[in-house]
Simulated scan of single mutants.
Amino acid sequence: MASATRYRSRYIAGQLLAWWPAILLGLMVLMAILAPLIAPLDPNRQDLLGRLKLPGYEGRGGTYWLGTDELGRDVLSRMIYGSRVSITVAVLSVLLSGIVGVTVGMLAGYLRGWPETILMRLVDIFLSIPAILLAIITVAVLGPSFFNVILVLALTRWPRYARVAYGQTMSIARRPFVTLARSMGCSVPRALLLHILPNIISPILVVATLEFGLMVLFEAGLSFLGLGVQPPTASWGAMLSTGRNYVTSAWWIATFPGLALFLLVLSANLIGDRVSDIIGKGR
């Protein structure tokens, strides 16, 4: 009986250890969704008399569990609301870049000929430009805003999806069922949606899970440089940018958002690795 209980405990612990990245990411997503309900204070409320206070400070309005920033705002509340920005930007930019990249890659791999040459040369041009440099230039031209950040990140990352979709589509397009569908007059959109896409979705999902963490980092980097979401909207990158000026006197301003950013990106990357392993074993 004792050995069975011990075995069950080890099994449960092993499952939790294996799935902790998904659990952590799920908790962060839930935190972002429920931010208005769980944030202890207004993230934008200023209290200059309570600026740069240590974690646990009790002041006007309640307890500041993670301290206050240079304007007396609650760091914990701003972190909770900042998660909404990071996760929303990452999800939408991954979806948009994935749709554009997969469409371009499938068209190039299925049509071949001059469409393939034009589309893949366009992919090569975008890949030859450093992504972060292209993002900075584009944001500087369009202006920093929430939607512009999403557009810029999608613009810089779609070629990766295109390369994967292109290679997978060329392989699938030679299969007998695709050749038969084409000979029976199947239109290009129908062939791509019904015959090509379902057979290449697995590697696309792997790319998307890995790109999610990268999008979070890009968004934080742009906000750190002042080219992302603009104040007073809370953003982890902007909090890091502010906190660097107070590292010696108020370490908590940059430490806690940096730790949250690290955990979010780490969990997303580990989930991507696990998805890749599962798909690889299933083949």
Rank of each mutant, 00 (worst) to 15 (best):
I204E: 04
L180F: 09
S145Q: 06
P203I: 02
L142M: 14
V164S: 04
R182C: 07
P189C: 03
R175E: 12
A154Y: 06
H195S: 03
A191W: 05
Q168K: 11
S171V: 09
L193T: 13
S183A: 13
N199K: 14
S171E: 13
T169I: 00
G143K: 05
A191M: 13
A191D: 08
G143R: 07
P159I: 02
T179M: 13
L151A: 12
R163P: 04
L192C: 03
P144M: 04
V207N: 09
A208N: 10
T156F: 06
I150Y: 07
L193Y: 14
V149R: 11
C186I: 05
A181G: 12
L197N: 01
A173E: 05
F147P: 01
F147E: 10
P198H: 09
I204K: 04
F146E: 10
L193R: 06
V206E: 11
P144Q: 10
M170D: 00
T209A: 15
T156Q: 06
T169L: 04
N148M: 09
L210E: 03
S171N: 12
L192W: 05
A191L: 13
H195K: 07
G185R: 03
R160S: 05
V206C: 00
L193E: 05
G167N: 13
Y166H: 11
R160F: 05
I200Q: 06
A181E: 14
A140F: 09
L180Q: 11
A191N: 07
H195E: 13
V149E: 14
A208P: 04
L142Q: 11
T169G: 03
S202E: 15
V139T: 15
L155F: 15
L205D: 03
L193W: 14
V141P: 14
S183G: 03
S202G: 14
M170T: 14
L193Q: 05
A162R: 10
I201R: 08
L205C: 02
V207F: 09
P203N: 04
T156L: 13
F177N: 00
F146G: 00
V149F: 11
L210Y: 06
L153S: 02
S187F: 06
F177S: 00
C186M: 11
R163K: 11
T169V: 04
V141I: 15
M170R: 14
I201W: 15
V152T: 15
L155G: 01
R174F: 03
R163V: 00
S145C: 05
V141C: 10
P189V: 03
V178E: 02
L155K: 05
V188T: 12
I200E: 07
I196V: 07
H195M: 12
P203G: 01
W158R: 01
L197F: 14
Y166V: 01
S187T: 14
I196M: 05
T209C: 08
L151M: 14
R174E: 09
T156G: 02
I200F: 13
L210I: 06
N148A: 06
R175T: 02
V139K: 03
A208H: 07
Q168W: 01
T209S: 15
P198S: 07
I172A: 07
V141A: 15
M170H: 04
T209M: 12
M184F: 14
L210Q: 07
G185H: 09
G167I: 08
L155D: 01
I204L: 11
S145M: 06
V206S: 01
R160E: 07
I196W: 07
T156C: 04
P198E: 10
P203Q: 09
I150A: 03
S187Y: 08
T138F: 15
L192S: 00
